[in-house]
Design a protein around this nucleic acid. Structure first.
Lengths: 209, 209
DNA sequence: AAGTGTGAACTTTTTCACAGCT
DNA sequence: AGCTGTGAAAAAGTTCACACTT
């Protein structure tokens, strides 16, 4: 099984399984069947087993899955036993929130630098992270390894996006109002914007009963 | 064409098209072809045209689409010409950020109340929104119309989830670490958690070249 | 001539159902 | 006996290609 052709939806579900397993672990649940786990994850049990089969033979026939070891296998598979260096683009309120966010750090994602283009923000230090001018990006990426970037700019998100892509950053979480994409399959973009998530809900409500 | 069987992926893409169209409008671009818009949205042009065909006949053959009128048609279709009442569950830093978030309000989503279970938070007013004890939920939902709930609790998100579902809230955006689902197709849940979005990126990086 | 809207072909994903292990 | 892992079948989603409109 080639890892590269993991379907996007399967990746999405694997991440969900991991989140649910971590919650089960906190509740001291030690073992679970595909049927029970699938129910908690809102999927069909066969779907869950097929998804897990991309990762390996993780269960015991006739028995089920160990919560702890399944969680670990998923974490490893998803690259979450490693630590990752982040940079932030745009010192908006959301950007400040993320720099102060304990959960992100606790999960092994570390902000190494933040960037802005407004003079009054340059030089600030937020939760130990320095804010640089965006035109210093090249300088900073030479000095430290940067794995991922998060765009939180409200006024000119495209400017940060372009700078990050040019700087050969291969993974970008874009939290601005403007969804962005690249042709290059060697670069991965995730787009998320709160009003867009709410829009899916508004469509649902508008068409309920 | 029955609106109810709009595929989930199509809904997701329609929301993206809307975001990109709004950005084009700000740039004063008045017209666009499916080919150009599709490129900006990271999809195949036929895909884009088929997605839009769920909404209606929105283009002009031989010409293309008017940005302004396509944007309006999408907004209407997605329920975004209406206003929606929100409540918040869990006064975490993320919850406070959202209560203060101008973009959400500007897009027609209004927080009517926030809930928490910790005494020291009850009675606070954040950006004009009062914080109530979760056990007052029934009382509040009797007094005002509640369309959607956003869960931002860090310690016991399930408690808020259960309360909201019991209170017959039909649309929930769950921003906690624990993904949640319901069997009932009359209830729509969106799950999003920052470390999970970053996990998709870490998987990608781990498996690059 | 140019570009939409869409049936038909194709591809991918999901679900079924059962062989096979514990 | 019970539950996983997985080919095969079914369903869903995507892309092609062209008729049709401006």
């Amino acid at each position: 099984m080639k890892i590269r052709d993991l379907p996007e939806n399967t990746l999405h579900r694997l991440v969900i399984y991991l989140g649910v397993l971590e919650s089960l672990e906190r509740k001291k649940i030690e073992a679970i069947s595909s049927e029970d786990l699938a129910k908690k994850c809102g999927v069909n049990p066969a779907q869950l087993r097929k998804d897990l089969s991309y990762v390996g033979n993780l269960g015991t026939k006739g028995v089920g899955y160990s919560v702890k070891s399944l969680k670990f296998s998923l974490k490893k598979f998803l690259g979450r036993t490693e630590e990752w260096n982040l940079i932030l683009g745009g010192l908006s309120p959301l950007g400040e929130f993320l720099l102060n966010c304990k959960e992100i750090q606790k999960e092994g994602f570390y902000f190494m630098a933040a960037f802005d283009t407004r003079g009054e923000n340059i030089g600030k230090v937020i939760n130990g992270v320095s804010v640089y001018n965006l035109d210093q990006l090249t300088y900073v990426t030479k000095a430290i390894r940067v794995d991922m970037a998060i765009i939180t700019s409200e006024d000119k998100p495209e400017e940060y996006f372009e700078a990050f892509v040019n700087q050969k950053i291969k993974a970008i979480l874009n939290l601005s109002a403007v969804p962005m994409f690249v042709e290059d399959p060697g670069v991965k973009i995730e787009n998320f914007y709160f009003p867009m998530a709410l829009t899916k809900l508004s469509f649902f409500l508008k068409n309920s009963f």
